[in-house]
Structures are given as C-alpha cells and as structure tokens.
C-alpha cells in the first residue's frame, strides 16, 4: 500500500504530530514500506477465526463501589507544565 502525502498529513493530524515539509517525503516512503511489508497477512485464510482481543486469562475483576482515591489536587497538578488555582491550563479552545 503506497501512501500519498494527503493521507500521511491526515494521519499525522489524527495523531497530533507535526511533520515538517522536509521530513514528510522520507516518512511517506518508510510508512509505505512498513505497511506493504505487513500486507503479507492478506495471504492467511482467517475465515471463521475470532480476533484474539484478549490474551489475558483473567475474568474481569469488579471492584466494590467505595471512594479510595482523590482529594489530592496538589499531587495531580504537581508535574503540570502550566497550572493555576487548582486548574490545568491549556491554550484556549474556541468553538
């Protein structure tokens, strides 16, 4: 599968990764090559095969409904690059 620039730009936006003009051409080639290499899976007959979403043997553990976390805004904010008055700060979103 050969990717085109528009697709790579669209994927990069979905992933919120800024790709410079210089970087994009080699990236297109690399990604196309990797995807092409993975396409050998198309050879495999997977009719009636269930996807292996869960390798884990565990049955889902249900916790009891009680409060055992929280009440530590300082800890939650301690690594934040920008915060004030107990809030995280981000550039304003307009909609």
């Amino acid at each position: 599968m050969s990717l085109d620039k528009a697709t790579v730009r669209a994927i990069a936006f979905l992933a919120r990764l800024d790709i410079s003009e210089e970087a994009i051409e080699p990236l297109i080639e690399e990604l196309s090559a990797i995807l092409h290499w993975t396409e050998k899976l198309q050879e495999v007959d997977t009719t009636n095969v269930e996807p292996a979403s869960y390798v884990s043997v565990s049955k889902l553990y249900w916790r009891e409904d009680f409060i055992d976390c929280g009440g530590y805004a300082e800890t939650v904010l301690t690594n934040a690059p920008e915060s004030t008055k107990g809030f995280f700060l981000v550039p304003k979103v307009v909609d």
Binding site: L35, T38, L41, Q42, V44, T46, V49, E50, P51, A52, S53, V55
Partner: peptide, 14 residues
C-alpha cells in the same frame, strides 16, 4: 484489513 486481520492471525498463532 489491518488491525482486525492481524488479531485473527494472532488467534491462529496462539
């Protein structure tokens, strides 16, 4: 074509 297919092949490998 990719993700779901790969999950199925994973089952076969298992």
């Amino acid at each position: 074509a990719y993700y779901l297919k790969a999950q199925k092949v994973r089952t076969l490998i298992i």
